[in-house]
Simulated scan of single mutants.
Amino acid sequence: MPISLERRTFTSGGKDIAVETLQVEGLLRPPAVVMLHGADGLSENVQYYEGAQVVAAAGFQVNLIHYLDRTEENRASFNTLFQNFQIWLETVNDSLAWVADRTEVDTSRIGIIGVSLGAALGLAAASADRRIKALVHYFGPLPQGAIAADAHLPPTLVLHGALDAIVPVANAYAVEALLRQQDVPHEIMVYPDQGHGFRGDARTDALERVVAFLGHYLAGHDASPLSGRR
């Protein structure tokens, strides 16, 4: 079935934030997924769009949030990454409020897919927002000091590469420990031959896991998510 792409905007901190919304045409009130890119932004890496299309084809409305519009960047500057984190987090929270106001989606079923920096933002946002029913954390750090004190994370899928030199795999295990501490349903998959970003069979496997995980926790599919082997 054809997938539609619609460009929209919302306002955060007085700035217009672009959103690209993908979903199967004619789909009625699907679950909504907020997708948060990494520090490289959305202007060069086509894999974000390819992944969004796979998730949309599985029956979700996917909203690619251009949160770097808040700081007027195409790529996040590593020199200002930490000082801008809270600003971007505010924009992510505004994006969730914007999605929750959409009448064409089922706002009781909202999920987040975060990649790298976006995964850290997604984890922080989901820790404070009970509207989030599922979280996918792609090779992101555990954002120290940004997790809500009274956090209760939703079911979470953690995906990481053992050879990641940018965000070491220890971060995946730290997120897993937090989820265990909170007794949150979760899965973790660490790919032994992958670095910061997945390629080949690992990328395909990860997308299959994402679709199965979101299908189980957002769409109520009877089939269990794929096993979280390491």
Rank of each mutant, 00 (worst) to 15 (best):
L5W: 10
E6S: 13
E6F: 10
R7W: 09
R8E: 15
F10Q: 05
T11M: 04
T11N: 05
G13A: 05
K15F: 01
D16A: 15
V19H: 04
Q23T: 07
G26T: 08
G26H: 05
L27G: 01
L36F: 03
L36N: 01
L42K: 00
L42A: 03
S43K: 13
S43H: 14
E44R: 14
E44L: 11
V46R: 15
G51H: 11
A56H: 12
A58N: 09
Q61W: 02
H66P: 04
L68I: 10
L68Y: 14
R70A: 15
E72Q: 14
N79T: 13
T80L: 12
L81F: 15
V92P: 12
D94I: 10
W98M: 09
R102C: 13
V105F: 08
V105L: 02
D106G: 02
I110A: 08
I110R: 02
G114N: 08
G118I: 00
G122L: 04
A125P: 08
A125V: 00
S127R: 01
R130Y: 12
I132Q: 03
K133M: 11
K133I: 05
K133V: 01
A134G: 01
A134V: 05
F139R: 01
F139S: 01
G140D: 04
L142Y: 15
L142R: 08
A148K: 06
D150K: 05
A151N: 09
L153G: 02
T156H: 04
L157T: 03
L159K: 00
D164K: 01
I166E: 13
V167W: 02
V175K: 08
L178Y: 04
P185G: 07
M189N: 13
V190C: 03
Q194E: 15
G195N: 11
G197S: 10
G200P: 08
A202K: 01
R203G: 04
R203V: 01
D205Q: 12
R209N: 13
V211A: 12
V211N: 00
H216N: 02
Y217N: 01
L218N: 11
G220I: 11
D222Q: 14
A223P: 10
G228V: 12
